[in-house]
Design a protein around this nucleic acid. Structure first.
Lengths: 208, 208
DNA sequence: AGCATTGGTGTACCTGTGGTACAGTAACCA
DNA sequence: TGGTTACTGTACCACAGGTACACCAATGCT
């Protein structure tokens, strides 16, 4: 007996993470039970605790994976955008357009952002996770700020804005757009917000 | 024995709602236990279920109260703003400034928005609550859209933008700003984002 | 061929949480 | 005096998060 599937281990772990991510984005972390995850993956509770020592470890792995994937996505998009155009401003504008296209091509409304989800349940987690979350947002700020400062050196802003705030606005517009899209169940709001932000960037640096 | 405090009933209910709101914004709905609420309020479990037939009823009351309070706040701010200035554009700009000031004067980072919090745990709730949530966001869209269309009739936009998207951007910038502020523990990000959006509105209608 | 490592299972047990059911009761209001 | 309001108290249930082990089977290394 006991003919359980033998998997590569990391495969099982990834399966848990994958089910957990969508469950957490739909029901919150506190509303997601370990029992439902092991039922979905097809392992026992002991199996779960073999991979994660407790629920907090699951949360950490979830967030870390999410941040890594986002970092990769932004890398890829910036690369593609700058490939098409080596002017920093137009590269950024292409980046925003590519981002809007990807969001628009999604089959359903955006599944949600773990950073937002976690910041609305942060007292459930260890301070380590809260710091990881903050570091993720600061990383985005840094990334966009660097690009904006580069742009500003070539295109003196027509409108006086703080570049740090404008960098945060990229993150904010996405987080806010996701919330609206999810809430009203209209997947197009998010890409529209990105494109509207793009108009703002144009008007800041080009004045139209 | 049994000398329990006799309260007005609605007072106890309000107390539960008040504790519940901050708990839900910190730990999520699924992470907030009825037990901790009754301990904070000083009643028994039976007492809780006297006021709310189940946890879902608590969520509904929480969200309804939140939406009502926000509606009132926006009413008040628009009234104050238009009192100072009866031009629709400048009234709106004053509104945004007043909003930024209020957010800036908050002693700590913004406690969070229940609409955002709920949309990241919406599978925990009945469809009635999800609809209430969507209606809240649509209400904001309508309110800001009406104002923007009024402005557009007096100030032909210098930048071609969809007014409906711009209306959603008010909501989005606030939701996004709250997430960033909470995440990086910097209460100033939110008011800065509101002011940056204000710059955008100016540039749309005044071109500077 | 032997042995450790990896990736689990199974059993038992404990606490806390959401929820149901229902009887009782003290205070207030007409 | 009697009904309504606002609870308390008791008992019970299933599920959730853990903890603590002992056990086992397939894989990989030597």
């Amino acid at each position: 007996m006991a003919e359980f599937q033998r998997r590569k281990g990391s495969e099982t772990r990834d399966l848990i993470l994958s089910f957990a991510e969508s469950a957490v984005l739909e029901k919150g972390f506190g509303g997601t039970s370990i029992d439902e995850l092991i039922a979905a993956v097809g392992i026992t509770k002991s199996g779960f605790f073999y991979h994660f020592k407790d629920k907090n470890e699951l949360a950490k792995a979830l967030l870390q994976q999410y941040l890594d994937r986002e970092e990769e996505l932004f890398d890829r998009l910036f690369e593609r955008a700058d490939d098409l155009n080596d002017d920093p401003l137009h590269g950024f504008l292409v980046f925003l357009k590519l981002l809007a296209e990807i969001l628009s091509d999604l089959p359903k409304t955006h599944p949600g952002c773990l950073v937002s989800a976690f910041c609305y349940q942060d007292q459930l987690f260890s301070s380590e996770i809260r710091e990881l979350n903050a570091a993720g947002v600061l990383r985005w700020r840094q990334r966009f700020l660097e690009r904006l400062e580069l742009i500003a050196r070539h295109y003196p802003p027509k409108i006086k804005v703080d570049m740090s705030d404008l960098a945060d606005m990229v993150t904010g517009i996405i987080e806010g757009g996701i919330v609206i899209s999810r809430s009203v169940r209209d997947k197009d709001v998010l890409p529209q917000q990105v494109l509207l932000f793009r108009r703002f960037v144009r008007s800041v640096f080009l004045g139209n």
